[in-house]
């Protein structure tokens, strides 16, 4: 049974605050699952628990029917992980680090060499294979690690922010690679690039403050949000204040109003009348994310928000 199931997973580091609270989910362990959430939301904590690197404080999890906490050794046969802060070891060449990783996984030497070369081709790092890792660009260092995990042939790949630090073209290349792996593998990834989650993932989970705030396909997530239209404008004038809906400020300094179709229509007419530039679009994952994770700004802390 290829499923990932978590039941009330909680994690507390030492006597500190809870990093995860009551995480329950049940999704097919196939295709791509993307976990998104702000810094400190608990993504890495959850990935590390599922990848058998970290124990949970309470709760249980099963992947393919295997108990993550009690049958870790069995699960390790079919998983590979690239941690968020993993770095290719500086004194090794790319080839040496990939081959040694495969040896650690128990492949014979010649098999490891062959698998490493094949994955290098797949990831487009053939030219870097015999350079010391310390001489590779940050993005290529990252690719060496992802290539290692891919080369392992493990069915389940845990990739914690695999595309962080990659240039836009490399990132899209990696997307293509991940898409091509999707048929055979279950890829559990985290990302801060919401368009990445939207593009790649069959299902998306939104983590906030250690809680799973939402989980589902894009269509299912859209349904969670009652307001389906987004107006973006630099003006924060009274005209843009929706009667129903929310007003938030995006990272780019734009104000955005998420509201219903009729309200969007009303506001847009007003904006046109005053000659204020704006855009109007249906919801993207960004909008859903803001809606779920960020509190709407109300009139009082409006100025505070701006002066930050």
């Amino acid at each position: 049974m290829e499923r990932l199931e978590c039941s009330r997973i909680a994690k507390r580091y030492g006597r500190g605050a809870y990093a995860l609270r009551d995480i329950s989910l049940s999704i097919p362990a196939s295709g791509i699952f993307a976990l998104i959430g702000r810094n400190g939301a608990g993504k890495t904590t959850l990935v590390r628990i599922l990848a058998t690197q970290l124990s949970a404080t309470s709760g249980s999890a099963h992947i393919d029917g295997i108990d993550v906490l009690r049958q870790a050794q069995k699960l390790r046969e079919r998983i590979a992980s690239v941690p968020q802060e993993a770095r290719a070891v500086g004194w090794l060449t790319a080839r040496q680090s990939m081959v040694s990783y495969l040896l650690w996984r128990g492949f014979g030497y010649s098999e490891a060499v062959e698998k490493a070369s094949r994955a290098a081709k797949q990831l487009g790092i053939v030219g870097s294979m015999d350079l010391p890792n310390r001489m590779l660009s940050g993005g290529n260092k990252r690719k060496v690690l992802v290539a290692s995990a891919v080369a392992s042939g493990a069915r389940i790949l845990f990739l914690d922010e695999p595309t962080t630090g990659l240039d836009p073209i490399s990132r899209k290349e990696l997307w293509d690679i991940l898409m091509s792996l999707k048929g055979k593998h279950f890829i559990f990834l985290t990302t801060h690039y919401l368009e990445e989650a939207e593009y790649l993932a069959d299902k998306i989970g939104i983590l906030d403050g250690g809680r799973l705030k939402a989980i589902g396909t894009m269509a299912e997530l859209r349904k969670m949000v009652k307001r389906h239209y987004i107006i973006r404008t630099l003006s924060d004038g009274a005209v843009a204040r929706p009667v129903s809906g929310t007003l938030t400020r995006g990272a780019d300094g734009h104000y955005q109003i998420s509201t219903t179709e009729s309200e969007a229509y009303r506001i847009s007419k007003k904006l046109i009348k005053r000659g204020i530039k704006f855009s109007m679009n249906p919801l993207t994952l960004d909008d859903i994310f803001y809606y779920i994770v960020k509190k709407p700004i109300d009139a009082d802390d409006y100025g505070k928000e701006e002066s930050r």
Binding site: A51, A80, Y101
Partner: peptide, 18 residues
């Protein structure tokens, strides 16, 4: 060093070895 600076041990823990 391998564990904390490279997170290599995490990769090895999530592998079929002991």
């Amino acid at each position: 060093h391998l564990k904390n600076d490279f997170k290599l041990q995490d990769m090895i823990v999530s592998s079929p070895t002991t």
